[in-house]
Simulated scan of single mutants.
Amino acid sequence: MRVRQQDGRQVHLSYCTNVHPAEDLPGIIGQLDTYAVAIRERLGADVLGLGLWLAAPMAAALADDGEARRQLRTELDVRGLEVVTLNGFPYEAFQAPVVKHAVYHPDWTTPERLEYTLDLARILVDLLPDDAERGSVSTLPLAWREPWTTVQQDAARHMLDRLAHGLTEIAWETGRLVRVAFEPEPGCVAETTSQAVGMLAGADTDRLGVCLDLAHLACAWEDPADAVKRLATAGIPVVKVQVSAALEVADPVAARPVLERYAEPRFLHQTRSAGGHSCDDLDIALAENPAGPWRVHFHVPVHTPPEPPLTATTGVLREALGVVSCDHFDVETYTWDVLPAGHRPTSPAELADGIAGELAWTRDVLSGQVNA
Rank of each mutant, 00 (worst) to 15 (best):
A215F: 03
R230I: 08
L217W: 09
A287V: 09
W221K: 10
F329W: 05
D327P: 10
L13Y: 02
V47A: 09
C279N: 11
T34C: 01
D364M: 02
T17I: 00
L81F: 01
V228F: 08
R363Q: 12
D46F: 03
A287G: 05
L247H: 02
V125Y: 10
A287I: 08
L124N: 10
V228C: 14
A227I: 13
T192N: 14
A245M: 05
P141I: 01
A255G: 08
E67G: 13
D327E: 13
P90Q: 08
E222C: 12
T139G: 05
T34Y: 00
V3D: 02
A63L: 12
T149H: 05
A360K: 01
A372M: 11
L268C: 04
A36C: 02
A59L: 06
P57F: 04
R266G: 03
V83Q: 04
H277M: 07
R179D: 03
Q5S: 07
L127A: 11
E115R: 15
D226V: 14
P147S: 04
L286P: 09
F182S: 03
I39D: 02
C211M: 07
P308F: 05
E288S: 06
L124P: 08
P309R: 10
D131L: 07
L163R: 04
S347Y: 04
L48Q: 04
W108T: 00
L321V: 07
L32F: 05
A234K: 11
L310I: 05
W53H: 13
D131Y: 06
D33N: 06
L321G: 07
H165M: 11
